[in-house]
């Protein structure tokens, strides 16, 4: 196995930041760590990147115990921290040169890699400007670029799109895909369910320091037997309305909250009119309707009873 994590624990005094997680990373895949803030994603990747030591557990990279021998992974690792980790008073070029040299690049090879990476991250025309003059999105892209220069075999990105504009976000997501195509394995942490869905081959869902589920998107959806959902907001809810909806053969579950009715159902075209007929018979006024396909947000909700962004 490329990267193997077993029984990993990290406690900060009484806080169980990571509480005994196991997962594997296959070479060449993009694996996502999905979870809300405080789930333990950043602590997990800090341990994988050798920045902090776990209280217990093991991390093997290509068969080497990197807790005992951090050097075994450091040269192969490109780490993109959640916060921008660059020298603001230096130019983008000076920053890239420095981080490249740290990983042993020099001369023409370094210049060539800087040219290549700055094209991927889209900052070629701003390379000579000071980083403190960059926009937030550009800083994030340069932050990624600094981790890519030495052609790392494994790249860890810690929530690289938090707080940036949609354009830069798309650029970053495309860059990650491109990096992966060139052969790097990617570990990507996020609390944006959409990013994990579109980017990752496999997803590990974390909550409160524990790994609560992992697999492909379909495997995760199968875990909870998820159906399509429709959420109706009506003028008032009464028992007869709920009973009539539950009687419909394509409805599998009905939940209510305030004036909202969440219905799990088989969302075919003909079923919409049948549902509307029930509302009409009950003389209830429909205020709004929201149709939802099952997603990771719903998986998280089903497994933890909380929304991903809570």
């Amino acid at each position: 196995m490329f990267l193997e994590i077993k029984g990993l624990k990290k406690y900060f005094k009484d806080v169980k930041a990571v509480d005994g997680i196991d997962f594997n990373v296959k070479e060449g895949e993009i694996i996502g760590l999905l979870g809300p803030n405080g789930a333990g994603k950043s602590t997990t990747i800090s341990m994988i990147s050798t920045l902090i030591k776990p209280n217990s557990g093991s991390i093997y990279y290509n068969g080497e115990d990197i807790i005992k021998k951090p050097k075994a992974i450091q040269q192969d690792l490109g780490f993109v921290p959640q916060e921008v980790a660059l020298y603001p008073t230096l130019s983008g070029l000076e920053n890239l040169k420095f981080w490249g040299k740290i990983y042993g690049l020099k001369g023409n090879k370094l210049n060539q890699k800087i040219e290549e990476i700055s094209e991927i991250i889209g900052i070629t025309d701003r390379l000579k400007h000071k980083v403190e003059k960059y926009s937030g999105g550009m800083k994030r892209r340069l932050n990624i670029g600094a981790a890519l220069l030495h052609e790392p075999k494994i790249i860890i990105l810690d929530e690289p799109t938090v707080g940036i504009d949609p354009q830069s976000r798309n650029h970053i997501l495309n860059s990650v895909k491109e990096i992966n195509k060139k052969g790097s394995t990617v570990i990507y942490t996020t609390h944006y369910m959409e990013e994990a869905e579109t980017l990752c081959n496999r997803i590990c869902i974390m909550d409160r320091g524990k790994m609560i589920a992992s697999g492909t998107k379909d495997e995760l959806l199968d875990l909870i037997n998820a159906n399509d959902r429709i959420e109706l907001k009506v003028e008032k809810i009464n028992n007869s309305l709920i009973q009539e909806i539950e009687k419909l053969d394509f409805v599998s579950n009905v939940k209510t909250k305030d004036n909202n009715i969440v219905i799990e159902w088989e969302g075919k075209n003909g079923n919409y009119s049948k549902l509307m007929n029930v509302l009409a018979q009950e003389k209830n006024k429909l205020l709004s309707m929201d149709v939802k396909k099952p997603d990771l947000e719903y998986v998280f909700l089903s497994l933890t009873g909380r929304a991903l962004r809570d």
């Binding site: 050798t50 920045l51 450091q74 040269q75 921290p81 980790a85 660059l86 020298y87 981080w99 740290i102």
Partner: peptide
């Protein structure tokens, strides 16, 4: 955060 980035370098 450049300190942390250096610490995980070779």
């Amino acid at each position: 955060n450049t300190w942390q980035r250096k610490l995980i370098s070779p």
